[in-house]
Structures are given as structure tokens and as C-alpha cells.
Design a protein around this nucleic acid. Structure first.
Lengths: 356, 356
DNA sequence: CTGAAAGCGCTTACAG
DNA sequence: CTGAAAGCGCTTACAG
């Protein structure tokens, strides 16, 4: 006993037991004083808190608590992409904001994960979590879903293929795109091209072939594609490598090179559509006079452009909030119902009747 | 025993002990088979893995492991702002990307936290974490630092006031801004205004008074301010409510209304500077002919503008990587040294000699 | 209102 | 190479 009896060893975190001992109460009582989960005399409670202060005790260790209670207080958000790419998508960011809001209010914290399983340790396989939200547009969630279901983590998929045991938050991707395409058709367009979201995991760029289309497991991209195809069955499509303006521009160049006679382009996201506008203007076309451009998302893209994009508006914050609430409900043992959010065509200044 | 002996109870996660029993080995051996932390005969290992598959065992429970090992595998990133606002800042996003890369490679996951301590439970106080990175520009980290030090979590501050027990990653905010201001001075500017980052927690907008300046604890903003003041001691400043173009524009309007004779504006971030350009153009000024504008960050702001902003470039990804590596080093018990990154003036097309 | 006891599911010395 | 034992730091019935 070289150290004074009334001070914790240097560097060693004090424990609840030490606090209890110092306060002259049992561990159970000390625990109750912190959690408030049971009746403790106010005076006793103050004694415990004082002892904690004296020992510089930072509160019950979350690791021990979580083993005991079976809860970690963590909800994971699983994304496909590199964080950097994901965060450049306003839809992801607003959704995340809705999620953080909702789970934060419930006392949970947000763990950011990618669905990569390459590494042996860490990530999906090992991170503590009480529930997981699998986020949008992922091209192949199956391995991640397998790992997490085995861990018995409640799963909420946002815009994901339906899967056994996974609750879903979806938006009317197909119907929304159909409405947008119909709007173009009503304006008189007949030669319409499509710029799609990534269709495979490596995010390959290029013209979408029939084979590629059939083999793709990219949920959102396929749904939105189907919506356009409901109106323009043979519309040519080029795949963008991401929901980014520069990718949209790249894909639009490919599309316009191959199909210079297009009078309208449908982008599967607003950022992609924005890139298409850039590409069109580069080659001297005026939007919407020479080319109509339609987006999807209704993103708030301040500073990006002064155009009002004609687009399909989806409630991204609400999507995030709902996904989070579904996770919380699942954790509370309440029944969880999958949800499909409606979308809405919003007319801007980027679509018009074709020339001539 | 109503359930078959060879199946786990419905809904109950199997444990390592059950797997071990089924494989006919001890729990210790089964643990080793999963962790690889000790020698296990290949055949034994396969038997354990087979048993795990049969019981649909998802691997050792992270909660128990983390109590036992004292590690949670989680590194927290603490931000001041709402997630939504933080993510709109390219500096935050790129830094986060560097952080995620580095800690992911080391098998750690990233927990996103705000430094709010309003709620009684959850967040900083209760979330499991092995280390925490406190992220930039925060106006008042003290309460968060207090809570986390008591928990004995190793702390890395990025652009934060030096504090007992916290390692620091900083950039040459003051020297960088001084160089930028000197550049303006060399061009002949004498009437220069400043648009600052938030100076208090509520993110109050408005002209920066001497009192306000003195009482502010916003580290980054104060440093950058000092840099400009080194060259232009009396430059008037207006505080923006965030590092966003619209906030920059708002602040610039206030600044230009009060000081219509300014020939140059220094924004404390690129996004703020961008807003200043917008505001200037709104009132018919041409940049840089009628007004020079200088930024800070060297952010990649694709799509936002086709201007090449004159700015102070800082290595944001590297900042994130370094902060992450420092956390990992601290966890490994290695010595940690604080770092200050140099910055560099990059000339663009938004600064020029004043007219006349 | 308080305390004694059990146990959450692992991993890690240690002995063999 | 394998097993028996201890214990990480809590919380929660339960008894008083």
C-alpha cells in the first residue's frame, strides 16, 4: 500500500465498487444513485455523488453496463461507399441528420460503418451495436446482412431489396420516375436518355447494356430505371460512377456522344442531373431549350446552381427519422411496419417542350 | 427441454460456451479458435467453427469482449455542430475521411458524437469509446473535455485550445492568415474587412465588437483573426453563423453596408469567401476588380464555382489521418507528439490590386 | 430505502 | 496444444 488509501491508483479508473465503499453504501445502492432506476434516499445519493467526485469517478463503465444490460446504446449506420463520397451526397447527409436527431433524442449514439468485410476484425463483424440501418443505393448488401442477422441485430434497410427479417424504408422510386418521364412525354419528348446511379459494386462507368441491367442488384438505380422505362421502354442509359456532378457530366458526355439527337435527359439524382446540364452547356446547348433535364431527390443544393431543377422530391430527412424510429421501436420490442414514402414531381426551369 | 438439444432457443443468441460444448472443447479453446490469439490445432479449430455454423453463432459478443479486454474498438469523433451543418463543410468531411481511413485500417470504428451534454444519458457521458477526437472550430470544448478526461479517454484535439492531457493537431492558422493578409497588403490594399467563423456557441451573427472578440473562446476563428490583424490591426470584422456560403453572403452584406469603401475581404473559410463573392456580385461589384476576396482552407469545392479562389491551403485529409494515428498511438501506449501543419498561400483569380 | 448475491459472455494468465 | 479458473465492472431481481 504505497499509495494513499483514499486516492485511486494513478491511471487506474476507479470503479463503482470503490465509490460505494468510500460512500459507505453497497454497490447496488451506488448503482441506483447513478442510474436513478430505483429509490435512493436523497442524502444517500448525495453521499455517493460526493464520493464519486472525490475519486474523480466518471460514471459507470459503459462496457460493463452494456454486458450486463445487453444494450450498447449504439445504432450503426452502414454505408456502401467511402465516407468521403457518401458525404458529398446531400441525400445521405440529410438522412443522417434525421437519423442522428432521432436516435440522439433517445439517448443512442451513431456508429458509422461501411459494409466492407475485407478486414478480418473490426467493422460490421465486431462493432458493438443494438441495431443497424443499412443505407441506400447499396449494390450488394447480402454479405453485410448475413453477418448482422447472425449477430441478431435488428436491421432496417433504407431503399434496399426486401430481405427476410429486415424492415424497410422505401420511397416511390419507380412511380416517381414514371411521373417524371410522363411529364417529359406530355411535353412532347420522344427521344429521352437516362443517366443512372452505379449499377455494380466497383462503380463501373459506361453505356448500360441489357446484360448488365439484368445482372445488376443495385436496388434504387434499377427501380428508377424501371420508372423511366415504363414510359420510354427503349431509352438508352449510361451508368454514372456516383451521385456527383462530375460523374453526371462524364456520363452525359458519353450519352450525348452516342445519341446526339436526344431532346431530354433523366438523371437518377439531382447531382447527376446537374452534371448533365454542365455537359450540355459545354457543347453549346441551352437547357431547357435544346435539352430538357430532369433530376431526382429534390436536394437542397445551395450554391451549386441557380437553376431550379425539375425533379422528383423525396423526403430525405423524414426517411432518416423514420428509419431511426423503426430501429428504436424494434429495440423496444414494439411492432415495426415497413414504410414507403410518396414522392412528388416538382417543376423547375430545366424542362420544356422540345424544339421544333 | 421442449426445444431440441441441438438447436439454440429461438431468439436467444448462442454463446461461446455453447459452441465450445458442441465442439467438445473448453471455452478457452473455442475463444482461441476465433481470435487466433493462441495456438489451436487446425482440426480443433475447424470443429469449433463447424459448431458455430451449426448453432448460427455470429462470433464472440463484442460487449463481453470489450469488458474483458478493456477495449471497445470505437474511436469517437466529437463535433460541435449539428451533423447536417458539419457535413456541409468540406473540411470536416475530408478530415473525417482521413480519420475513417486510418482507424478503419486499424480495426476501429467511428462513433459520431456532438459535444452537447444537455441530455442526461447517452452521448459523451455514456458512449463506449477508446479514444476521442475533438473536432475543429468548437467554441467551447471545456465541458466535453472535462467529462472525457474523467472517463480517462485519450483525447486528441484538432484545432483546439491547448489543454492539460490533450494532444493537439493544429494548422498554422495565424501565420497562414498573416501571409494572406500580407499578400493583400503587397497588392496595395489598405481597407480590408474580415468575415469570421462563429465566435460563440449560439453562433450569433453580426459585427464583431472589441468585447465580443475578447470574450470569445473560438480557437480557430480567433487565430485566423489574429493573423489578419497582424497586418491590418484595425480591420473591421463581421461574424458569420457558420462556414457556409449563405452565411458568408449574409455577413458580407453587413460588412459592405457598414464599410462600402473596402477594397478587399478576407473570409475565414473558403465557403464564407464564396458567399462574399456572391454578395459583392449582387451589388454589381466585380471580383477582383472592385473587391479582392481571400479564403482559407483550399477546399475542393466542385460545382460550387468556376472561380479559383485565392486562399490558404491546409492539408485537411492529412490532418484527419494524423489525428487518428495519434489516437491509435495513445492506445498502443506509444508516445504522442502534437503536430502543427504548415499551410500555403495559393493564388487564384479573386485577388488583385485595388482600383485607382 | 438498502444490501448480498448472482451473473451478463467473454479472454487471459496459468497449469498441465 | 488444451482446460479449469478467475474476473473484467456493472445491474437487477430478491430479501430484508
Amino acid at each position: 500500500m504505497a499509495t494513499p488509501a483514499n486516492s485511486a491508483d494513478e491511471g487506474a479508473r476507479p470503479t463503482l465498487a470503490q465509490v460505494a465503499a468510500r460512500a459507505g453504501v453497497s454497490a447496488s445502492t451506488a448503482s441506483l444513485a447513478f442510474s436513478g432506476a430505483g429509490p435512493v434516499a436523497e442524502e444517500t445519493k448525495q453521499r455517493v455523488l460526493a464520493a464519486a467526485r472525490e475519486l474523480d469517478y466518471g460514471g459507470p463503465d459503459p462496457r460493463a453496463r452494456s454486458l450486463r444490460t445487453g444494450r450498447s446504446g449504439i445504432i450503426a449506420v452502414v454505408m456502401e461507399d467511402r465516407i468521403r463520397d457518401a458525404f458529398r451526397d446531400p441525400m445521405v447527409v440529410t438522412m443522417l441528420d434525421g437519423i442522428a436527431d432521432e436516435i440522439g433524442a433517445a439517448g443512442y449514439s451513431l456508429l458509422l460503418l461501411t459494409d466492407s468485410l475485407e478486414r478480418q476484425q473490426g467493422g460490421l463483424r465486431d462493432a458493438p451495436m443494438d441495431a443497424a440501418l443499412l443505407l441506400g443505393c447499396s449494390t450488394d448488401l447480402d454479405p453485410a446482412v448475413a453477418v448482422l442477422s447472425r449477430r441478431q441485430v435488428p436491421l432496417i434497410g433504407v431503399e434496399a431489396q426486401a430481405r427476410e427479417g429486415m424492415h424497410l424504408v422505401d420511397v416511390e422510386n419507380r412511380a416517381g420516375m414514371r411521373a417524371g418521364a410522363q411529364h417529359l412525354h406530355d411535353l412532347g419528348h420522344r427521344r429521352v436518355g437516362i443517366l443512372t446511379l452505379p449499377m455494380d459494386r466497383p462503380h463501373t462507368r459506361g453505356a448500360l447494356t441489357a446484360d448488365w441491367e439484368t445482372s445488376s442488384v443495385a436496388y434504387t438505380g434499377r427501380e428508377r430505371l424501371a420508372g423511366v422505362r415504363d414510359v420510354f421502354p427503349d431509352a438508352p442509359a449510361v451508368v454514372a460512377a456516383g451521385s456527383l456532378p462530375e460523374e453526371g457530366a462524364l456520363a452525359a458526355r458519353t450519352l450525348l456522344d452516342a445519341h446526339p439527337d436526344l431532346t431530354a435527359i433523366v438523371g437518377q439524382s439531382d447531382l447527376i442531373a446537374l452534371g448533365a446540364i454542365q455537359a450540355a452547356e459545354e457543347r453549346g446547348m441551352t437547357v431547357p431549350r435544346d435539352l430538357s433535364v430532369l433530376g431526382f431527390d429534390g436536394a437542397r443544393i445551395d450554391g451549386l446552381t441557380d437553376r431550379r431543377l425539375t425533379t422528383i422530391v423525396q423526403p430525405s430527412v423524414e426517411k432518416g427519422r423514420t428509419a431511426a424510429r423503426m430501429a428504436l421501436a424494434a429495440l423496444a420490442g414494439e411492432p415495426v411496419t415497413s414504410v414507403v414514402f410518396p414522392v412528388e414531381l416538382r417543376l423547375g426551369d430545366t424542362t420544356a417542350a422540345p424544339r421544333g
